[in-house]
Amino acid sequence: MLFSGEVADKIVESTNEIFTGMVMMEIEAIDPPAEPIGQFKNSITGLIGLAGSFKGVLAVHFTNDIAMAVTGSFLGLEVEEVNEDVHDAVGEIANMLGGDLKAILSDKGKDIQLSLPSTIGGEEYVFNSRDVGEQLLLAFKVPAGVFYVEAELEK
């Protein structure tokens, strides 16, 4: 099991560390949905790919409202629209989580390569896994709603 309790716990811990230490926002881990969400509305997803000894993707899914609140708190300013700063901040959160996931899976670091972060977003889109690896879905509550961290990996 790639995503044993210990690995999942460490990703929860990393998410907490990023939000409390850098975004300056308190989050609470809650029970995730039983199935992947798949379809998103008025949302932004930050993505980072892993290649090498572990292959897959880590994604963080925010509604637009949460993404704006997160970006505002991250940068210490009011954010009223989903702009370039919001996409950049969401990508950077995915980047930090991807870096932590890599560190969890590999001490040395050279056997796993990280892609550059990217974002997708819009009124309605589908995020489908390829169903070829092991999947993890985590949910976190913030004042503006619930966001999700999703990973799919194969060895």
Partner: peptide
């Protein structure tokens, strides 16, 4: 950087990096 693996940081130091700080940081 988010990259904290000892191989990568070791390579950076061998190329002259003075040190490394992991993201996220306070």
């Amino acid at each position: 950087s988010t990259e904290t693996g000892e191989d990568i940081i070791g390579e950076a130091k061998s190329l002259g990096a003075a040190g490394a700080l992991k993201k996220p940081f306070t």
